[in-house]
Design a protein around this nucleic acid. Structure first.
Lengths: 215, 215
DNA sequence: AGTAAGCGGAGGAATATCCTCCGTTTGAAA
DNA sequence: TTTCAAACGGAGGATATTCCTCCGCTTACT
């Protein structure tokens, strides 16, 4: 979360306020404004809690559950995210942002393609990439030209490079990577403690990636 | 479903009836009795629909949804399964039974351990083994000594034999197999048509199993 | 043809979820 | 320190969902 807490557009700044409170005209051009510290913290907590719950339960959690997990009142949730869409958008962006950023720095540093692929998949798993998929059907017009193009080039470069190296089975597609990350993000619904669940996911993801390599 | 339709115990025979209808005393010893044909068919349909829905949605479906999918009235569901427990038990047993039977015949015929393991995992996936895990937390006292012991010996013989053959990585455990079958049973929540979803699951299961083999 | 087993599904009860409203608390500018 | 708008909490009514009984009708079997 680069630049956390500093809100740089009127839109972002205004979002948390109640919707019937008119945005005064002197805010129509960009300004750097800081939310109140507690508001910042609560906003991020709400996003993080939502991500956690989605990944734990494997579906959309109730608003009440989100607020409780975040340790804030239900009113606070509705102040920051007046409707479902705004919350889902924030949540998806956050997870996407995290995994893309992680991926970009991995691409720079990894020594070969297969290694980059492996590191990226584990990093994306930890970044909560799984929520994007779960949230997606409920998201209208997720137009994030910036993120989506970054994600596209990232996937291209990672998978492409790994295939070029010749270490991966040649029938592999990007779908196999994307779907796998989704699959390994999903809870087992087996009542494992969270830490163990994550450990198993990473272990099995490793097996899976081994299986992607040429025998 | 061996012996489908022939009910051999008073318990099973009596189950579908409304609960406040007293079981007459002349039924207290075992008899071979046949349910009415339509009742048989509906009962099995209800079980199958429940399995399908659980696997599609990844959680417990509502009673209404089950009845609708089965093409019967809600009253019929409650006649056959007066409470949640009886339905869940029947569903879990059915899926477990199917995969164990499939596994047993695979063990007999497969030529080597790794091959048996692979065939079994695919068969269990198709048998709906995934529901057992999802249903399990809601099941009190699932005491099926028969099934559980059969399942135990089956797993032992499959994994044991595969390990003996030396084709699998030596740190592999039964947990890795069981959890994998659960994982590949879960829906991707990506809105794929059902057939495609199943195809992807099998494809990725194959990758995973490749990853279990020694490089 | 007779009859009890079995069926359907309307609809009230119980539950879960949503989301507004308003009195209270608090961060931060002066 | 004071001041006050921003931010907070959470009770509680509105809505949506799910549960499950009840009873008149249908049908498989003898």
């Amino acid at each position: 979360m680069p630049n956390a807490g500093v809100i740089t557009t009127v839109e972002d700044w205004w979002a948390p306020r109640v919707s019937n409170y008119p945005c005064p005209s002197h805010h129509t051009r960009k300004r750097v404004i800081r939310m109140r510290a507690d508001a910042q913290k609560n906003r991020q907590r709400l996003i993080d809690s939502t991500i956690e719950l989605i990944l734990e339960v494997g579906g959309e959690p109730s608003r009440d559950a989100i607020a409780e997990r975040a340790g804030v009142g239900i009113g606070t949730l509705y102040r920051h995210f007046p409707d479902q869409q705004s919350l889902l958008h924030a949540v998806a962006r956050c997870a996407l942002e995290r995994s893309i950023s992680a991926g970009e720095s991995i691409v720079e540093n990894a020594r070969d393609g297969a290694e980059a692929l492996r590191q990226y998949m584990h990093a994306a798993l930890d970044s909560g990439i799984g929520v994007v998929n779960i949230v997606h059907p409920f998201l209208d017009k997720p137009d994030w030209p910036d993120l989506l193009s970054r994600a596209g080039t990232l996937m291209n470069s990672i998978v492409g490079r790994a295939l070029e190296d010749g270490r991966l089975r040649s029938d592999l597609t990007e779908r196999d990577i994307v779907f796998a990350m989704i699959r390994f993000s999903r809870p087992l619904a087996v009542g494992l403690p969270l830490e163990e669940e994550r450990a198993v996911a990473h272990r099995h993801l490793d097996f899976y990636i081994d299986g992607l390599c040429i025998p």
